[in-house]
Design a protein around this nucleic acid. Structure first.
Lengths: 220, 220
DNA sequence: GAAGTTAAATAGGATTCCTATATATCTATC
DNA sequence: GATAGATATATAGGAATCCTATTTAACTTC
């Protein structure tokens, strides 16, 4: 592909538009809070991961390492994050959210913005569709090396796509040993372990249910 | 809704992730160009619209008006945009891309980044699905007043959803007087005219094809 | 152990991005 | 038509983001 195809170009424009709306939303949600969207995003990442290196923060935000250092310093000044030496590697620094940081993150994460409402207004089938498409895109970006590996179900060694007949919960997670449906697929699971045979799992997943109705819905 | 529902929350996270990837992409694509993603986005907007007011630029980017003024000034310093008095309204300023600006925009828009490739890797049916979902979301945001009115087919008075029997091109545009399919729906059409009966058009569109197979695909 | 690689910090600087306010101009009202 | 209010932008002021290039320290490899 030497040229963007028109539809992909349109989708990028749409993504850009939604991204801008999300960013504006975040500023609005933080109007009374002592931080800005970038800091809030880092804080949430630190809480979710229970600490992270500077490089991981930079990769998560998609910014350069010095920028991550800058923003982490801002969080530190505000007493929301702390820096500790990494024992395994003397070059590295681990960043943690403080108790105050965790508490603040908790209140911020429950706030509902315009984008949340727009997403919630989709009907459940559309939401599930969108989630599947996002997972697909994130996986594509990961394969390209454009983003750091995400903790997706579809690349996890515990994931068994279409292990069950139940159309509402066809998948199985071997870690929690439970069946679940497409709407419960995760983008960032703490129990994730990268599968060696990720490609194989993906094929099984993207092929859809293995029964007769696996035929494409586009076909009448 | 006083609390984000879990799936909507997950979708917001996904959107955030894709937005970050897109931003990183834009920086990479502009590595050798004399501007940054924000300026490039403004420049593209100015070219698409053939000029815009400061306020419209701010609304498009989802930033405050002074921020838009700042970035427009940066484009002006670089000789890529120009400011003119708006004749209709003495308070307003119209911003235009210069010939150099238009030329630069042209070369930049043809560049293909990681996000474009990730989108292009989706199969055509998935791309069409994603476009429909984006349109739905953008419309929801517009209804909430969270973003400025976009020039969408689905809110245009020339749009006739499912006017034809052809499953590949069921819609009709009365402006160009031609049939077209879901993949050709626009997010920013220069010929757009806001429909008075937008809600009605939307209902007709979202209900799907009016024939017997209009039943929800979720139903067996 | 030397050379190369990697993680983070530092330096330096342009720009983004905000809120608050000033200025002009338009619009609606008495 | 004068006046009050609303609107469009610019300005002021300042914190942070964000970059590239470089330095420092620590790990890794041969």
């Amino acid at each position: 592909m030497t040229q963007t195809d028109p539809l992909a170009r349109k989708l990028r424009d749409g993504l850009e538009r939604l991204g801008a709306a999300l960013r504006a939303d975040q500023w609005a949600a933080l109007a009374d809070a002592p931080l800005n969207p970038t800091q809030a995003q880092i804080l949430n990442f630190l809480v979710k991961r229970g600490g992270a290196r500077v490089g991981a923060v930079a990769a998560e935000l998609g910014v350069s390492q010095p920028t991550a250092t800058d923003s982490i310093a801002a969080l530190e000044r505000k007493g929301l994050a702390q820096r500790r030496a990494e024992t395994k590697d003397g070059r590295a620094t681990l960043i943690f959210a403080t108790a105050r940081g965790r508490a603040l993150n908790e209140t911020l994460q429950t706030r509902v913005g315009a984008t949340d409402r727009a997403l919630a207004a989709l009907d459940p089938a559309e939401q599930a569709q969108l989630l599947a498409l996002f997972i697909n895109l994130i996986r594509n970006l990961q394969l390209e090396g454009a983003i750091a590996p995400q903790r997706l179900c579809v690349t996890c060694r515990h994931f068994r796509p279409y292990a069950h007949d139940d159309a509402n919960a066809p998948h199985h997670c071997a870690f929690v040993d439970a069946a679940f449906g497409g709407a419960a697929l995760r983008l960032d699971c703490p129990d994730h372990e990268e599968a060696k045979e990720a490609e194989e799992i993906w094929l099984k997943f993207s092929r859809g249910a293995p029964t007769g109705d696996a035929a494409r819905e586009a076909v009448p």
